[in-house]
């Protein structure tokens, strides 16, 4: 088992990673344990990590702190517990400005980019959960401000997918 102690912003995370199999890890972050499936692991060569770089290897990770987390190995902190987001919001997110993943899975396609105008219900992404491709429809009409996820990325329930522009 390896212990990574990392500081992200002003918070410290202690991440314990235990390798169960080549692509399976048991990860403990802040007392909560997660099973992590590594779906890709590639060397990006000499690339320098900048705040905006997209994560090559996707891991089952929870929402915020995403960009900062991108550079890290197998584990990402489950910063704000997904449970908090789960109870209140209806399926499909529909929170004020952001739309979040309705269930855990892997993003297969992202169909919108910042600046796009969407109708309510229009396909914005495809989420693979339990090997089924689920179409994620826009939770409201509006303009996309930001997209937080990439194709191939694992998401947990409540992970923010995208943000709408406030009108």
């Amino acid at each position: 088992m390896r212990r990574y102690t990392m500081n992200i912003g002003d918070r410290e995370f202690v991440v314990d990673v235990q390798e169960l199999a080549a692509d399976q890890f048991s990860v403990v972050v802040g007392g909560e344990s997660y099973e992590v499936n590594l779906s890709a692991d590639e060397s990006l060569g000499e690339a320098i990590i900048t705040p905006d770089i997209k994560s090559g290897g996707s891991v089952r990770a929870a929402a915020p702190a995403r960009k900062e987390a991108a550079a890290k190995p197998a584990a990402a902190p489950a910063a704000s517990a997904p449970a908090a987001a789960s109870a209140r919001k209806p399926a499909g997110g529909g929170g004020k400005g952001t739309q979040s993943a309705p269930m855990p899975g892997t993003i297969i396609e992202v169909n919108v980019k910042p600046g796009d105008t969407v109708e309510r219900g229009q396909q914005v992404a495809v989420l693979d959960a339990m090997k089924m491709h689920n179409i994620i429809g826009a939770s409201r009409a509006g303009t996309i401000a930001e997209v937080y996820v990439d194709a191939g990325q694992a998401v947990d329930h409540g992970t923010a997918l995208l943000k709408y522009k406030e009108e």
């Binding site: 399926a91 499909g92 219900g121 959960a129 339990m130 089924m132 689920n134 179409i135 429809g137």
Partner: peptide, 26 residues
């Protein structure tokens, strides 16, 4: 398994695209 659960999810989504029953159906 798992086809029945997928069919249930599809029926649910036909009625309401924001309803994701898949995990319960699974």
């Amino acid at each position: 398994f798992p086809m029945a659960a997928r069919v249930v999810q599809r029926v649910a989504q036909e009625e309401d695209f924001e309803n994701f029953l898949l995990m319960h159906a699974m």
